[in-house]
Write a protein that binds this DNA or RNA. Structure first.
Length: 572
RNA sequence: CGGGGCGUAGCGUAGCUUGGUAGCGCGUCUGAAUGGGGUUCAGAAGGUCGUGAGUUCAAAUCUCACCGCCCCGACCA
């Protein structure tokens, strides 16, 4: 491609609405333009990189035995009602009406559609395992789109769905995708690593997310460098000891704490109750039921764990008025010892199990209770791990300290089980002639997000540093002086033709611009290999070959082609 | 949905407090010089100042409403 024939609108200045480096570079390098919030146009250069990522995904999915198909983005709401997600996923569902006023949904994902297909086409264990995938535009009514392609209303996703006759088969399918994902991200030049994850609204029994470390990521990951344990903070556990039991057995005693409504205030004089001897009592509305959640005063509730453990779909903290109505006191004086209505379930964090000599609210504004023994003085419906781990806590597996870092989620693999196959009737006959629901898995990659993650991870002050495999062009030729027929331009044209003939993707910067402009733009758009042609080096019969972000070398004009070919092949 | 910030030429912005001819840089076009890291000079085009009401002799500027964009939050009593 000749630059003068292309559209590569680079920007010297950063557009005002970009915050993170990858978003700025997407705009500055002329890869995308914003149509409106959360919706972007892929310009030719951006599309080329996007297609390369898609191609890598296709090759690895095919290699793993998955079958590509293409499903409609527009879907009937009936199948969403059947799966139950018309309700549970309603916040992200875009809905439209046709001319007869019938409602449709724009697919945020395709479990319902693929399961409907399987229900009709997969009727025997002999047809399994099967894994179907597509690369397609998804629509999600995000609460807040942000950071360019990172979280958009419309984005491109690779989604795959496996169907197996047995649980073991499903695990094997899962493992194949796990391995394929590892290869895909490595080939994209991304340092991505798998972490244990919550399954969320998709459902299913277990899952891994593939994470790209980045300060700007929206996720937090807890990990152990010693043993390799890694989990999303929403799921992570640690090996902390339970709260120490003490000798005393005194009866519960009420004491006045006027104006004290925080853990911190109670931990100070004159009360001086350390946060780790306090029970924090949280009132939640979980699927319209009022419940209590108890965690230690120095811990934080992990709402995702709470939802996962209790199976609740919609969860919110109760309002102060609701707390007053349920327990007779306002937040700050709440407890589970007295006045808990019989129909209110009490969930407690494991770390409190067996604790005594604790202090908690008295359910009477301005009063707390001390000498509280969990087992003796209050009724816990169920114990769960509900707390959020913190950096420095011992790893549950090897006791070395955990670290926490932020990361971008680029892929997610789920073992789904039979949740969708049961609801949408995707059943098959096994060897004995018995009808069973298929065991499913689903596997997503955010393709557009992956593109941005590559940039977020691979850049310097001058611009993008594309990994060769996903660069929009592999080579840029930068002639300093573009007079047709000049020695420089003649050589530039020849290298351009020869490299193109060898299948190399080359951008020829034939603009009549000053060297500085061309170098800056070449760095900004991040083409991995630059061939510089100028009078100085050409006078010695040499051309310059420079890796983006690396050293410059000189090559004899006659050897330039071979040298560049070698670089391209080695880096691919 | 709550909070904060912002909307002035393709991009980045000044002007708004204290109402009175809309300014600068980049980019674009023309010409000239220059020619190895966003060069320089001369000239030019390009604006419903987000939209609508209101106040006023007069509104980019003040008031109200709406729209849009960006950031934080929508767990931790």
């Amino acid at each position: 491609m000749r630059w003068t024939n292309a559209l590569i609108p680079t920007l010297k200045e950063t557009p005002a609405d970009a915050e993170i480096i990858s978003h700025k570079l997407l705009l500055r390098a002329g890869l995308i333009r914003k149509l409106t919030g959360g919706l972007y146009i892929f310009l030719p250069l951006g599309l080329r990189s996007l297609r390369k990522i898609e191609q890598i995904i296709r090759e690895e999915m095919d290699r793993a035995g998955a079958l590509e198909l293409l499903m409609p983005a527009l879907q009937p709401p009936e199948i969403w009602q059947q799966s139950g997600r018309y309700e549970t996923a309603r916040d992200v569902l875009f809905k439209v009406r046709d001319r007869s006023k019938k409602e449709w949904v724009l697919g945020p994902t395709h479990e319902e559609v693929i399961t409907t297909l399987a229900a009709g086409e997969i009727n025997s264990y002999r047809q399994m395992p099967k894994n179907f995938y597509q690369i397609q535009t998804k629509f999600r009514d995000e609460i807040r789109p942000r950071f360019g392609l990172m979280r958009a209303k419309e984005f491109i996703m690779k989604d795959a769905y496996s169907f197996d006759a047995t649980d073991d088969g499903a695990m094997a399918s899962y493992q194949k995708m796990y391995d394929a994902y590892t290869r895909i991200f490595a080939r994209c030049g991304l340092k991505a690593f798998p972490v244990e994850a919550d399954t969320g609204v998709i459902g299913g029994s277990h899952s891994h997310e593939f994470m790209v470390p980045a300060e700007t990521g929206e996720n937090e990951v807890a990990f152990c460098e010693a043993c390799g344990y890694a989990a999303n903070i929403e799921k992570a556990t640690s090996g902390l000891p339970k709260t120490a039991a003490r000798e005393i057995g005194a009866a519960v005693e009420k004491f006045a704490t006027p104006g004290v409504v925080t853990i911190e205030a109670l931990s100070k004089a004159p009360y001086s109750v350390p946060a780790n001897r306090q029970i924090k009592t949280l009132v939640y509305i979980a699927d319209s039921k009022t419940v209590l959640v108890l965690i230690r005063g120095d811990d934080q509730l992990n709402e995702t764990k709470f939802m996962a453990k209790t199976g609740a779909v919609e969860v919110r903290p109760a309002t102060p008025e609701e707390c007053l109505g349920t327990l007779g006191a306002k937040p700050g004086s709440l407890g589970a010892v007295a006045n808990v209505p019989a129909d209110v379930e009490v969930f407690a964090d494991e770390r409190l199990r067996g604790a005594n000599d604790m202090t908690t609210g008295a359910n009477e504004d301005g009063f707390h209770l001390k000498n509280v023994s969990i087992e003796r003085d209050l009724k816990v419906t169920q114990w769960f791990d509900l707390r959020t781990v913190r950096a420095g806590e011992p790893c549950a597996k090897c006791a070395k300290p955990l670290k926490i870092r932020r990361a971008i989620e680029v892929g997610h693999v789920f073992k789904l089980g039979t949740k969708y196959s049961e609801k949408l009737n995707a059943v098959f006959l096994d060897e004995t002639g018995k009808s069973n629901p298929s065991v499913m898995g689903c596997y997503g990659i955010g393709v557009t997000r992956t593109l941005q993650a590559v940039i977020e991870q691979s850049n310097d002050k001058d611009g993008i540093i594309w990994p060769l495999a996903v660069a929009p062009y592999q080579v840029i030729i930068t002639p300093l002086g573009v007079v047709a027929g000049s020695p420089i331009m003649t050589l530039a044209e020849k290298l351009y033709a020869d490299l193109t003939a060898q299948g190399v993707e080359v951008l020829l910067d034939d603009r009549d611009d000053r060297p500085g402009v061309k170098f800056k733009d070449a760095d900004l758009i991040g083409i991995p290999i630059r061939i510089g042609l100028g009078e100085k080096s050409l006078a010695n019969g040499e051309v310059e070959i420079k890796r983006r972000g690396g050293e410059m070398t000189l090559a004899k004009t006659g050897e330039a082609l071979a040298n560049v070919l070698e670089l391209v092949r080695a880096g691919g």
